[in-house]
Design a binder for these strands. Structure first.
Lengths: 187, 187
DNA sequence: TGATTAGTGTGATATACATCACGCCATAAT
DNA sequence: ATTATGGCGTGATGTATATCACACTAATCA
């Protein structure tokens, strides 16, 4: 539980026991059941979440009521509506459990305290954000350059476990293709 | 010139004169002509660039030799192949001038020195990266949820000046649509 | 200045993909 | 046990967009 968070941070910056204790004190642990919402559109976004176990989806619902998957979050991933979290405004996205899920919650206030109190944490978070930003750019490129079938195959290679845990309709939505079209990709 | 960089950083974190002098000492100024490359695919990426004036494009060339615009960079924007810059590996993207362009160059070595020597700079860069990451997510959503014509209209509203400075074929590439289709959008 | 090239528009045709409609099974709820 | 419900596949049809081909104009250059 606690070790997962420590390992995750230490992949990027080393921490002493004391430093990690300081970090840990700023998180709270929560458990959610499948179908529960961590963030609902229109409501304030109180936390950024680090996933210990389980699976989340980050979703945008368009005017027509159609859902679009912005991202999934498995073990070791962070998830929240970052725009609303940092601006302390209400969510335009929602976060829902696809499985029973355990998360560490970090409030914006505690995020600031962590960054002020431990420079290493800020550096960790910067590295994390840079990596996320690069990944987002790759996804944009893949949307620009490849057909849906190719994107699906890339996803199969990159996250083979995800495919088994997520209904295909949601994978389709993540890839920007209809579930019917994705269903024909085994051809 | 120098003031542009200072204003840009101070939008996010305040700086004393001394602090800014320290920051500035880590940048070098360079001037490029239209059609020159700042970064070429396959070559090492020595700098991240802050644009003082002019206009850059960040481009990916696919196996078929077709170019795809990852992003444009106008005044006050940063541009580089971040993946390659931080990993100190060779570029998979290239950066080329669409106009005569003046940039401040920051090497990775100096980036680290800046972060180590002035925590405020690291905070500034984190905020910048967070904003970039959120913007990338918005672009992904717009690619997932909207038709090309709508994306074009959104771009017109968001960056009206860009449209006048950039050939439509490049806008089309940025939007993920063929130039012929984009050309029919005035209907 | 005349020639080349870049930028743009537009018709005809092809295609990837969406949408609608239906049926089938497995799981969950009553 | 029976009924809903969710997940998945598949045919038929429609549409947004790609691709190919060509022409026209405005820059750029020799």
């Amino acid at each position: 539980m606690v070790e997962k968070l420590r390992e995750h941070i230490q992949k990027r910056v080393p921490l002493t026991d004391d430093e990690f204790a300081f970090v840990l004190a700023h998180f709270t642990l929560k458990t959610y059941k499948k179908h529960q919402f961590l963030i609902q559109e229109g409501e304030p976004v109180r936390y950024a979440y680090f996933v210990i176990s389980g699976l989340l989806k980050l979703v945008y619902t368009d005017e027509a009521g159609k859902q679009h998957i912005v991202s999934f979050a498995m073990e070791d991933w962070w998830e929240t509506d970052f725009q609303a979290f940092f601006a302390q405004s209400t969510a335009t996205l929602s976060v829902e459990c696809l499985e029973d899920t355990v998360v560490f919650c970090l409030s914006l206030e505690n995020y600031h305290k962590l960054c002020d109190g431990l420079q290493k944490f800020e550096r960790f978070f910067l590295q994390l954000t840079i990596a996320g930003s690069i990944a987002a750019q790759r996804r944009i490129l893949s949307l620009l350059t490849t057909k849906a079938k190719e994107r699906y195959e890339q996803l199969l290679n990159q996250y083979p476990t995800l495919i088994q845990r997520v209904p295909k309709a949601l994978l389709a939505s993540y890839l920007g293709v209809s579930r019917e079209t994705l269903s024909r990709f085994t051809d």
